[in-house]
Design a binder for these strands. Structure first.
Lengths: 138, 138
DNA sequence: ATCCTACAATAGACATTGTCTAAAGCAAGT
DNA sequence: ACTTGCTTTAGACAATGTCTATTGTAGGAT
């Protein structure tokens, strides 16, 4: 399994059945689920879990930095449990499938000071778009 | 003013008061408005314009490549009239303000074939995040 | 082992954003 | 001016996310 639960406990996170189930869903398959997909999988393990709890828990995990929120231009945010290795994303414009990718280079260094407009820039996110093999075949 | 209307007409776009107003709103201030902000400004010029028309028209402009859709992780998509010069975005994590930026380098070249998973990659979008001077001061 | 208390979960209303439909309107070619 | 097919409209609907007041409970204190 994982040390995610351990890490959370170590940070004083109060452990409940609901939170454990949400963490297990994220930890189990490394895909990029929407909040409602997480909810559906959580319900399979713990039928009485509510939608609000799943949303709350996801929000907390994001705040704690254990999970990343990914906005492609699909409707719903997706949640990425791979928060501890920096990476970017490759999105299928047709079906919305997402893959983690690791481009070479450091895009952070590519933004000159003259283009920062006084912002304190702390993060950069690179999203490649294209068509996945599946959709290309169809 | 602009040749946006001319370009559209040249492409056989049937010109209506509603479409003209939406195009004018986008052309007028070069900021990144949400669909409902566009609607609000359009209503100011043409009170009977409907929300559906604004959404439809924005969608058509995106399809025609005259306007870009920008998804930050805010709730609503934003529309960027600066579709003809390639650029990326710098977003304030607090207030959601967006600036167009021009990083050096070519991120498209930074994704090795081995990281493309058989996708046909056609586009890349780089989003810098940080805190704008206004929010930093507050 | 039991009790307390602050934190967490719940149901469901509500809010926001976006999409669809069927009927009425109208731009532009003839 | 007429006609035709594209556009617009209002409002219902759908999808996603947020909030609130109440009830439940984890984990420390006794």
């Amino acid at each position: 399994m994982s040390d995610l639960l351990e890490r959370l406990r170590g940070r004083g996170w109060r452990m409940t059945a609901q939170r454990r189930v949400v963490a297990e869903v994220l930890d189990g398959e490394h895909v990029h689920l929407t909040a409602d997909e997480v909810h559906a999988r959580a319900v399979a393990k713990l039928p009485e879990i509510s939608r609000a709890t799943v949303y709350n828990t996801l929000g907390e995990l994001v705040t704690l930095g254990e999970v990343l929120e990914v906005s492609t231009d699909q409707r719903a945010k997706r949640y990425d449990p791979n928060a501890h290795r920096p990476h970017h994303h490759l999105v299928c414009a047709q079906c919305g499938a997402i893959r983690d990718v690791h481009p070479v280079g450091n895009p952070m260094a590519d933004l000159p000071d003259s283009e920062r407009f006084g912002f304190t820039v702390s993060d950069v996110e690179v999203t490649y778009r294209g068509v996945c093999p599946n959709c290309a075949a169809a």
